[in-house]
Design a binder for these strands. Structure first.
Length: 552
RNA sequence: UGGGGUGUCGCCAAGCGGCAAGGCACCGGGUUUUGAUCCCGGCAUUCGCAGGUUCGAAUCCUGCCACCCCAGCCA
């Protein structure tokens, strides 16, 4: 995998650390909590963490930060593993779990208690909030702050033994209730949760908080650069506090970068989960979802996602990235790598009156306009064809480069035809166009010098196959569905999915492998649905339309 | 009225005292059996604002403004 030596502030830090000898090797980690599916924002984090390790000859771990069993599940673990692999990354060694360090974390908690730097607090959640103060007022010390080491040790052991109920007691670090940084106001290290954990079962009834766990997990694994997003910046002093006050044998450092916010998209796990649970989308992997699995099903490729992550860069500024950049990345990949095919989405029958009824001609056409190695495919050509209804008008001005009554058009990869008359139903709708072929125009221009006005795609009525095509559009109509007071559900795009039940495809397409991407010429990029596509019932999803610069 | 951040073209983003890279988008033109691709060309006398230092500033200093994050026993 080519890795552009992405120059960003993190690489600068790493380069200096390597040069100064602060670290001998770069070790990063991607630490998802298994409480939802990975989305495009995670893809950026993955790209940053694995990318930096790779670019510097280092390693990157995959570690589940599973410290809150209430919200986590094995299903999420499996989806995350699959997504990271699909994106093309290989983590160092085995998959890690924060939960496998629970005993070590507990021992360190005991260590802090023994040093008089942590205490068991009996304040309930509401009281704790009151004691914590506000952004502008300092907090007050908990009345339980000065318990003896002996008592704290006893209480902590009993918390672990399950002698207290949830919410009754917590273990807190003794730092500074007057700190302007809320995170330093005696943060909670352990809380009681009498729920089974997906990895440790019922072994524990107390669980460490993110703050008490994350840095130590990094230290245990020898992480040199612990990279996270901006909202954790205020936690860094606490992260460092634990590393300094605990007998850990490695000194990881935390660095933060700006989160990815694509326009017309939401990346809040909570809200994505809501879309799934309320049935607004078909699931976490619905092609309209910004999840890795959704994008996969939509037809995005790992290469395109990685390219996009490279394009947007890694900085500490917080902005909205135009989804057009993501769309550019997938178009660029598919333009280069997707075989071409023809599919008529809105069929209108054309009868070539000069073409014999029984005749079936097999026309060989290239699978890609510039990559010969893609080979050729056979296109059956017959008297009756389907073209797209939008590609025919009874009359039109010169700017309309398609079929017009009395005019000529090139059938892609086949003959030039000329429209002679239209057949309408009782309501005046055009139901058929009668036309004739211009002789010797297969691969040649008309001998009379009259050039066709354009090129349109087609599929044989007799030899073509019916297909279901799902046309996806952006899920939200608002550029920032999440912004300020906006309720993201108010800007759901009612037309984000249009199912075309009777599209017509060239026969070879029925045998497409699931997940194979194609360019349906003049229409866009499509992918054979990962789950529903079958030769007997072809199903294609529109990944993204072709760039369209046609201005009326 | 606390603390932590960020402000360079519509969007992303280089730049780190020597006189504004690149990409996306957009706008022209050329090629084309995809109104696609490709190819050429255009697109910030200006870097949130105001002062100051300097021969010289987006880059240094001062002040101001805007936006983001923090008061979960979530991560």
């Amino acid at each position: 995998m080519e890795n552009t030596p992405a120059s960003n502030f993190l690489q600068t830090i790493i380069t200096e650390d390597l040069a100064s000898g602060r670290v001998r090797e770069v070790v990063t980690r991607f630490p998802p909590e298994p409480n939802g599916y990975l989305h495009i924002g995670h893809a950026k984090s993955i790209s940053v963490n694995f990318g930096l390790a790779e670019a510097n000859g280092g390693r990157c771990n995959l570690r589940f930060d599973d410290t809150n069993p209430e919200k986590e599940s094995q299903e999420y673990i499996e989806s995350i593993l699959e997504d990271v692999r699909w994106l093309g990354y290989t983590w160092d060694g085995e998959v890690r779990y924060a939960s496998s360090y629970f005993q070590q974390l507990y021992d360190w908690a005991v260590y802090l208690v023994e040093k008089g730097e942590a205490y068991v607090c009996d304040l309930n959640a509401e009281q704790a909030r009151e004691y914590r103060g506000t952004l502008t007022e300092p907090g007050r010390n908990s009345p339980y702050r000065d318990r003896s080491v002996q008592e704290n040790l006893d209480l902590l052991a009993r918390m672990r033994a399950g002698e207290f109920e949830e919410g009754e007691k917590v273990l807190r670090a003794k730092i500074d209730m007057a700190s302007p940084n809320m995170n330093m106001r005696d943060p909670i290290l352990y809380r009681i949760r009498k729920v089974p954990h997906h990895q440790t079962g019922d072994e524990w009834v107390i669980y460490p908080t993110y703050d008490f766990a994350h840095g130590q997990e990094d230290a245990i694994e020898g992480i040199t650069h612990s990279i996270c997003t901006l909202e954790f910046e205020d936690h860094r002093p606490l992260y460092d506090w634990f590393i300094e006050h605990l007998p850990v044998d490695s000194r990881p450092r935390q660095y933060e970068f700006g989160r990815l916010n694509p326009s017309y998209t939401i990346t809040s796990k909570r809200k994505l989960k809501q879309l799934v649970e309320e049935g607004i989308v078909a699931g976490w992997d619905d092609p309209r979802m910004p999840t890795v699995s959704g994008m996969r099903r939509r037809g995005y490729t790992p290469a395109a996602i990685r390219k996009f992550c490279d394009m947007i860069g890694t900085t500490r500024s917080d902005g909205v990235v135009d989804v057009a950049m993501l769309e550019f990345a997938i178009r660029e990949d598919l333009n280069e790598n997707a075989p071409r095919a023809m599919c008529v989405l809105n069929p209108l029958k054309v009868v070539l009156t000069d073409y014999p009824e029984e005749k079936l001609e097999s026309i060989s056409a290239p699978c890609h306009p510039s990559r010969e190695e893609f080979g050729q495919r056979e296109l059956p050509f017959t008297r009756e064809l389907y073209i797209d209804a939008d590609d025919f008008r009874e009359e039109a001005n010169k700017k309309y480069k398609r079929l017009v009554l009395g005019k000529r058009v090139r059938l892609r990869n086949a003959y030039v035809i000329e429209a002679d008359e239209v057949v309408k139903d009782g309501e005046g709708n055009i139901i058929e166009v009668r036309a004739h072929t211009i002789p010797n125009t297969l691969g040649e221009n008309p001998e009379d010098g009259i050039r066709p006005r354009g090129v349109i795609h087609w599929v044989s009525v007799r030899a073509g196959r019916r297909a279901e095509v799902r046309l996806y559009d952006r899920l939200f109509t608002d550029e920032a569905p999440d912004k300020g007071e906006n309720d993201f559900l108010d800007s759901i795009n009612p037309d984000s999915l249009t199912v075309v039940e009777q599209a017509w495809i060239e026969p070879a397409l029925a045998d497409a492998e699931p997940e194979q991407g194609y360019q349906f010429e003049r229409e866009g990029y499509f992918v054979a649905d990962r789950y529903d596509h079958r030769a007997e019932h072809p199903v294609f999803n529109r990944t993204i339309g072709l760039r369209d610069t046609w201005t009326n």
